[in-house]
Simulated scan of single mutants.
Amino acid sequence: MRTADVSRNAPLPSRTAFTAAAARAAHLLVDADPVIFSDPLAAPLLGDRAEELLAYHRMHTTHPVLAVARAEAVCRSRFTEDRLTRGNSGIDQYVILGAGLDSFAYRSTARRFRVFEVDHPATQAAKRELLAAAGVAEPASVTFVPVDFEAEPLRERLVQSGLDPIRPVFISWLGVTMYLTGAAIAAALTDLGGFAPGSEIVTDHLLPPELRDAAGNAFAEAVGPVAAEQGEPWRTFLSPGALSGMLRGAGFEVVEQAGQRQSVDPQLWHRTDALRPAALSALAHARIPHRPGMPGC
């Protein structure tokens, strides 16, 4: 399926959804062991753009910008799914904000989850065509929730789509916050903070220049202007302290924060390929605490 197959009058699906999936796919093709994150459906979901997008990684395997892109994509996915699938949380509702071409619901053996994929309608339409073209069935456990993050209340839309608001939910919000205003991020977190006690969130954020290392700044200088030219400008850069303050203000308690190096097992950085941890972004894991007087306390 070509991106242009979507209605000519509709907005194009997110380009970054394709480049992120290409980075996950390329990790299995061009990087050496140990594998940080395995997403065998990433390449099939690229459709007829697979050859084009993966060729960059094959031809320029050691290019620092492409290597940082792969490390960024696989580390945040590994960090999130490790926390989602741990056996003791009891959470079975999973919300993926800005789902893009995320393939968790189609490859996971953890069938206890009901998955709510939240994204722009054009991106969702493209994804569903790609799934069909790749012969990947949409399980009954998946619900597509079209949302404009800047304009619509997330919690309300999710509840309207069948999410149970009195039971805990796990939320991933990856590769999105940099495209939103600070006000939109704070409003979304406040909305999500209204979910049941025990609910959890993992989100990432781009660091401001003074907190990046040379590799992180080189990536930002190369990729940021291109994203803007393609209609997806980076709007917000946050320090870990600033994001922590937003989370607390929305009713979450911060469980952990990690840079790329700390986000995965240290053994995974014993490598012979071009992947190296970069100070470009950071991850936060938070939960809504149980407090006296709350239901279930």
Score class of each variant (00 low, 15 high):
residue 269 W to T: 01
residue 151 A to Y: 12
residue 42 A to G: 06
residue 201 I to L: 14
residue 184 A to H: 07
residue 291 R to K: 13
residue 130 L to G: 01
residue 138 E to F: 04
residue 126 A to V: 02
residue 230 Q to L: 14
residue 13 P to G: 01
residue 32 A to C: 07
residue 120 H to L: 08
residue 109 T to R: 12
residue 44 P to W: 05
residue 105 A to R: 04
residue 172 S to G: 15
residue 259 G to P: 06
residue 249 G to F: 15
residue 53 L to D: 01
residue 9 N to D: 15
residue 244 S to N: 10
residue 80 T to K: 09
residue 203 T to G: 11
residue 190 T to F: 09
residue 226 V to D: 09
residue 184 A to L: 08
residue 249 G to L: 14
residue 127 K to P: 00
residue 213 D to K: 07
residue 132 A to L: 07
residue 213 D to Y: 13
residue 106 Y to Q: 05
residue 228 A to H: 11
residue 159 V to D: 02
residue 2 R to T: 08
residue 86 R to C: 14
residue 77 S to V: 07
residue 267 Q to L: 01
residue 210 E to Y: 15
residue 167 R to V: 03
residue 167 R to S: 09
residue 41 L to N: 07
residue 220 A to F: 11
residue 18 F to H: 10
residue 177 T to S: 11
residue 252 F to R: 07
residue 297 C to F: 15
residue 120 H to C: 04
residue 242 A to D: 12
residue 287 R to W: 12
residue 195 F to K: 12
residue 189 L to A: 08
residue 202 V to D: 06
residue 68 V to A: 12
residue 287 R to F: 13
residue 241 G to R: 15
residue 281 S to W: 10
residue 166 I to A: 13
residue 257 Q to M: 14
residue 250 A to K: 04
residue 209 P to I: 02
residue 285 H to I: 03
residue 189 L to S: 05
residue 5 D to H: 15
residue 111 R to H: 14
residue 268 L to E: 02
